[in-house]
């Protein structure tokens, strides 16, 4: 009985209408390369329409699909138990432009106001006067020589934190924002998987 290892992918984004084969959902490893190739090419699902929501494919569904064709394989699953499949969304260039402009304005004026709120909230003018007196020994009601470099420094700090200054390859050290986006995507995927598992259990309960 030939052993086949299959490693389902975490997620898959397909072009709308493209048929989904087993090879797209999982990686296969077997002694027999010909067998590997046939398994990869085996169709699994018809293509998703453009606006279709995400679906979650259980690794057991993959096993069942293979069993229907071949009963003489020893299937071993390594890796995630679910694959989330989504149709690719092609953004409308006009809308993307409008959204970009809107987000840009939001981020710009939002940051502008937020830093003012912060200064007022923590009584930063008092601190600046104090620090100026500490350094120079003189009192100044508006120590601009401290405050203008401070303002530019605030921007530099944001850049430093998000690691946007260097033009290095993403492999070296990802920006916290990249990490945050990844965590967010992963959480959304976990939610989809657990929802489809719950729906599956409800289905089974109804059948009993």
């Amino acid at each position: 009985m030939p052993t086949v290892y299959l490693k389902p992918r975490d997620s898959l984004i397909v072009a709308p209408g493209e048929d989904i084969t087993l090879g797209m959902l999982a990686e296969f490893a077997a002694e027999d390369h010909e067998l590997e190739r046939t398994l990869r090419g085996q169709p699994f699902l018809p293509g998703l329409t453009e606006g279709h929501g995400a679906i979650s494919v259980s690794s057991l569904d993959l096993v069942r699909a293979i069993r229907r064709q071949r009963q003489d394989l020893d299937l071993r699953i390594v890796g995630p138990a679910h694959t989330v499949v989504k149709p690719r969304v092609r953004p409308n260039p006009v809308m993307a432009g409008i959204w970009t402009a809107a987000v840009t304005l939001l981020l710009f004026f939002g940051s502008l106001m937020a830093i003012m709120f912060f200064h007022a909230d923590v009584d930063m003018p008092l601190v600046h006067r104090g620090v100026y007196q500490l350094v120079t020994g003189e009192a100044a009601p508006r120590p601009l020589v401290l405050q203008i470099p401070y303002s530019i420094g605030v921007g530099v700090g944001v850049l430093l934190f998000f690691n946007s200054l260097s033009r290095r390859k993403p492999s070296s050290d990802p920006s916290p924002l990249d990490v945050q986006m990844h965590i967010y995507d992963q959480d959304a995927q976990d939610y989809l998987v657990s929802q489809s598992a719950a729906a599956h259990r409800a289905d089974q309960a109804r059948q009993k």
């Binding site: 710009f108 939002g110 830093i115 401070y150 944001v158 990249d178």
Partner: peptide
């Protein structure tokens, strides 16, 4: 991921906001 590039506007916003506040 386009949003990561828009961080530059956060930077500009922070500098402008801070300068307006002090000046």
């Amino acid at each position: 991921t386009w949003v990561t590039r828009l961080i530059w506007f956060v930077v500009l916003g922070k500098i402008t906001g801070s300068l307006i506040y002090w000046l």
